[in-house]
Each structure stands twice: as C-alpha cells, then as structure tokens.
Design a protein around this nucleic acid. Structure first.
Lengths: 343, 343
DNA sequence: GCGCTTACTGAAAGCGCATTCAGGGCTGCA
DNA sequence: TGCAGCCCTGAATGCGCTTTCAGTAAGCGC
C-alpha cells in the first residue's frame, strides 16, 4: 500500500472527541455509554474508517484469514473441495487465502512459509503429499514451529507422516470396491491410467485396485499400468500410449476422473466406443462426469463435504491427545461408461 | 493465533549478538558486514524464525497479499480466470486471497471491507456486477476510500459505472458474431438460455445476439428467451421450460457454457439429439466443453489470459489520467453441436 | 450529606518490525 | 602522525491498535 495516509482510530477518536481507548471499545462492542458509542460509530461511518487488520493482529486480536494450499484451482477436484472450505469459512466470517502450487513442492513450502508469516490461524493442505520423503521432511520442519506457535493445520489426502488432523478419503477401499464392481461385470483384462508414482493417492488407489484383482486371481500386469500427470492431457497421453502398445484390455480404470476425461478423448480420436469397445471407470465423481457421454462410472467422493470437514477440523479444538482423522468413504457409482463383458 | 510466543527478530538479534537494526538489515539483504550477516542468518535458521508479516506491514513495508473476489470458485469459468491470476501472482511472489461470494452482493461488499482492513495492495473483482445500481453504489462507496488510500482495483466484466481499470471481454461483439455464424448455418428460429437480467454480462450478450438477429430481419421473440441462474442446473431448468412450452426453435444459444451443459442434459433426458434435433451454442469456451459429446460450439474467451491481464493491470501503475481498459475479443469456434439447417 | 462501591473513561504500554539519526571505527591522503 | 570522510552499527522512534491500570464521576445506603 502507498504511503498515503489512512483514516486511523485516532482520527475517529478525535472526531468523536473521546479517547482512543473508548473509540476502540465502542467499535468492538464492549460496554460504553450509549451516548459516546453513537458518537464514535457516527464518526467512524462518516470518515469511512476501516480498522487496520495488521495493527489489530499485532496488538493481539486474533485475525481471521486462514490459508488453503492446493495443487491447482482449475482442477474441478480441488475447486469442489475449495468450495466446501469456503462455505464453512464464510459462515464463520473468515477470509480464505487460497494458493495454487501448480504441483511444485518447492512452491508449496514457500506458501506455507508466507502463511506462517501472515500468522494465519490455520493452514489447510489439500491434496496428496509427495511420497518423496525429502519434501515431506521439509514440510514437517516448516510446520513444526507453526504448530508449536499455536497454529492449526489440517490436511486432505496427505502423507501419513504429517502428524496433523486429517481428512482421508478411503482411496484404497474405494479402488478395491471399484475392482470388485468391474470384476462383477465380467471384466478380466484391465488397464490402469495411473498418476505420478510418488503421490500417496496413487499408491493407495493403484494398490487397492491391484490387490483386489490379485485376490480375485486376476493379477494386473505391470505393462498395463501407464503413468501420466493427473490432468486431462495426462489421461489423453496415457490412453494413447496404451492404444499404441496394442491395448488388449476390456476395461480401463483411470485413477482420477480428470484423467478419464482425457481417455475419452483419446478413445474417440481413435474411433473407439465407450463402452462398446472398452469400458472406462474413474475416481472422484467431479460434477462434470455425469454430463459426459456416456456418463462416467466412478468412485464418488463427497468432495464438498471433504472441504467442509477439513475446515471444521481446523476450526475446532482437538481435545484428545491424538490427531483426529475423518475417514470418508467413496461409493462406486455405475454409469453408462462400463458395460458387461459379452453383452 | 494463540498467545503462545513466537520467535521474534529480537530473539534472532540476541542470538547473533547484534542489534535489532542489524538483524533486520541482514535479513532484508541490505548492506551488512558479511561476518555479521552470516551470524544473523545462521541464528534465524537455527531458531526457525519467521518474520511477522503484520508487524512488517505495520512498520511500513508493503505487503504481498492481493485480494481476489469471484462469484464461485467451483465454476470452471471463474476457476480458469483465477488460475491466470495466480500464475501472475505467483511469478511476482504474491499471495492471493481468493474469496467466493456465491453470488451474494452483500457478501461481496463484506469481502471488500475485509480486504481493505487487510490493507491488500490490490483488489480484483472478477465477474459481472449487479446492474442493480443499489449494490454498485454501495460498492463504489466501499472502494472510494480504498482507492484514495492508494489501493489498486482492477475488474473483469464489471459494470461500467465503476471507474477502475478493467478487462472487458467483448461480450456484445462475441454474441453478435455467434448470431451471424448461426444465421449462416441457416438457422432462423432461435431460443436463448439467459441469465439473471441484472447482470451486465447478460445485457451485453443477449443484446448483442438479439440486435444482430434483428438486423438480419430475424427478430427474437421474447417468449423464446428463458431466464435461469448461470449454473448447470439453471441451464437444465431453462431448457426444460423451453421444451415444456413446445420448443419450435432449431437452435438454442446459451449465454454461458455452463448453462449449455445443463441444456445438453435436459435434451438428453427428453431423448432429443444435439445437433440432430436442435443445435446448441454456448459462450466462454471453458476447457471441458471440447470434451462434451458433441463438442460445443461456443464463443472462445481467453480465460487464463483474462486472469493474467487483470492481475497485471493491478500490478502496473496507471500513468495516464484515464482508467485503462483491456478489451479481449471472443472468437466463434464452430464445433459439432451446431449443424446446418436442412442438412 | 458522607463514605463506599460500581462503572466508565483516559493515559500509557507494548505487539514486532523498518528506519532514521548519531556515533564510532576505519581508510586515505597529506 | 593527523585529519577529513566514509561506511556500518546500534539506540530510539513510530506504524495503528488492544488492553491494562489508575483515576474520576455517578449511584447507593446510612
């Protein structure tokens, strides 16, 4: 902000002809003679006075801006969760500082540092941590003094090594349930559109899916797992690679809906039909997938609720001695993108 | 934040056995004897010192958190623009406070007030203002002292009465171009899925479309314009209403892509084909519409660029005497959702 | 009407930092 | 060796606010 001078509390006090302390009290709703209070309020309104949040925070009043860090706001998955966070934040008269790391761990840490500097009362980390322990260590180191200082941290889908309150979608169970559902449809030859191996989300979803298949006697060949970034284009590329290799699967499981969208496009570009030629399933149930053609079979996560819960975790005191974990189950939703084999 | 005490600059100075001033200078990269500087830096690292952004802001250093207010982060249109804003913000080492009003004007003003209190160096307003002058007045009143205090404001698609730097998509021209394109395809009977009449975006897009049709001798019957909120469900409802009335149009123009998505669903639920039974066109070109079936004909706006530009406007000084206006043109992109009449 | 409690008010301290203003060590030149 | 001049350091000030602490006026019972 420019060096231009602002209206300060002192100006208001002078205009109302009361002391600074009285003006402060009047503005903060503490007991003040009605007569004086009115004068202060009138003066404040007349001068368009806005208290300086920095001075206020510095003087001890807790301030009301929480920090939220996600990978990418333009991704519907994060947008939906952020929406839930903001609903709860708004209801509690909180401002949200939303940062997008664009999947750069370095930037993520830089953001936490800035949020620490802001003395945000809470920091929310949304989205997979990097299994790469180097970064998780750095993050822990960054978070520790913050927590010691009384800050609150809550996370979604984060690496377990971070000892903080968490919202954990049941990725493993959800993927396993999807495996069962697909097996039930008669599929035996699967391919997986996977994400960066380092992400905990990938480990859980891929692991859950693979283990369930293995248990059913239908092992998943490593050659049928293709990796790509968790984006629409990543899904497109991965699907294309699969096709180039000569896909011999009847069903493709994309670890996220966004990747499945890319897979649809790749399939369409090759003239292949979903689910006629190949069934496709996703994970997350972002709002748009029910409007795809065909609507996507997926594991439905209560995205908005995830956002609400993580904000609530940060807002409520943890009275117990252990960190709290809210587990939210995903439910398989069968839509038209998956067909019975042989039908 | 809790009353728990933080590591302060004083602690660092003491640990490094230098004065407070020297510690401050060392940390801020000003000239200090290397020997002392190293000691300070080492002490800071060792104590996990994080400068208090509030104290810093209060002491005069400009602080680095800009405010962005949009209607709804979960809407891909706003998410895409926010993405652009964040890219530029990130490149400039700025934090973004992103607030979602959920289309409540009262909340929008409350957010501006909070941002003023935060002494954010810039406030960005993304999305249609409410033509209802009552709110625009209130917003002006809120913004005036902020601007007088040296704050920067930049807006996207905002009502013209706000005299601030603006990014303006060419809504009117874009809609007119779309009208021409559709006429060229042979369509003569149109329907429009419109949004809240009060929004400037609605006025421009609807006006541009209608005027162009009228000019071509194909007036748009008021009964063929249905209003709904700018959401997927709003589009669904509006389309359904049109269908219930006995739609006799060959082409439906949705004022936003998001509404068009809802229209697709409504049409599908009635067993109607796009574009076989009716052509559909949208506006915005949010990323997902090219993955719809059929891909949506729309007016493509450079959404990310819009976000980048508005952030840049706020970051650069306006040297001229008049407010700056960046006009971005939309381009008609014909995809498979619109067909030639009779073909 | 006097003394005491109660209820507000106002002065002042201090939150953590950037910055100004002097003062002191040092270099360089004579 | 002496003095001007420069650079760097440290003490002190103030940013705008909340909050304590002391003080004063009002209210009450006697």
């Amino acid at each position: 902000m420019q060096p231009r001078t602002h209206v300060t509390l002192e100006d208001v006090a002078r205009a109302a002809d009361v002391s600074l302390a009285t003006a402060s009290r009047a503005l903060n709703g503490m007991r003040v003679t009605p007569h004086l209070r009115d004068r202060v309020l009138a003066a404040a309104a007349q001068l368009a006075y806005t208290p300086n949040a920095h001075a206020r925070a510095l003087a001890g009043a807790s301030h009301r801006t929480v920090g939220v860090i996600c990978h990418d706001v333009t991704d519907p998955y994060f947008a939906a969760i952020a929406g839930g966070v903001m609903r709860v934040a708004g209801a509690n008269d909180l401002l949200v500082m939303l940062a997008s790391t664009f999947r750069d761990p370095e930037r993520e840490i830089a953001y936490v540092s800035m949020l620490r500097a802001e003395r945000a009362p809470a920091i929310l980390l949304i989205g997979s941590g990097f299994e790469d322990t180097r970064w998780e260590r750095a993050m822990e180191a960054e978070l520790k003094p913050y927590l010691d200082g009384g800050g609150k941290v809550a996370v979604v889908s984060r690496h377990r090594s971070l000892k903080v309150d968490s919202v954990l979608p049941e990725n493993r169970a959800g993927a396993a349930a999807m495996a069962r559902a697909l097996l039930e449809l008669g599929h035996r030859r699967f391919a997986v559109l996977s994400g960066p191996r380092a992400l905990t989300t990938v480990i859980d979803r891929l692991g859950g899916f693979r283990d369930e298949l293995t248990a059913a006697g239908v092992p998943l060949d490593a050659a049928h797992v293709v990796e790509g970034p968790f984006t629409r284009d990543g899904g497109y590329q991965a699907m294309t690679e699969l096709l180039d290799r000569g896909l011999d699967a009847t069903c493709v499981f994309a670890l996220t809906d966004v990747m499945a969208i890319g897979a649809y496009a790749a399939l369409r570009d090759r003239g292949l039909c979903v689910p006629g030629d190949v069934s496709v399933a996703g994970f997350d149930d972002i709002p748009i997938v029910r409007d795809l053609t065909p609507p996507l079979t997926t594991v439905a996560l209560p995205l908005r609720e995830i956002g609400e819960k993580v904000m609530e975790l940060a807002l409520t005191e943890n009275t117990g001695s252990r960190r709290r974990i809210v587990r939210l189950t995903g439910e398989v939703v069968l839509r038209a993108s998956t067909a019975k084999v042989g039908s």
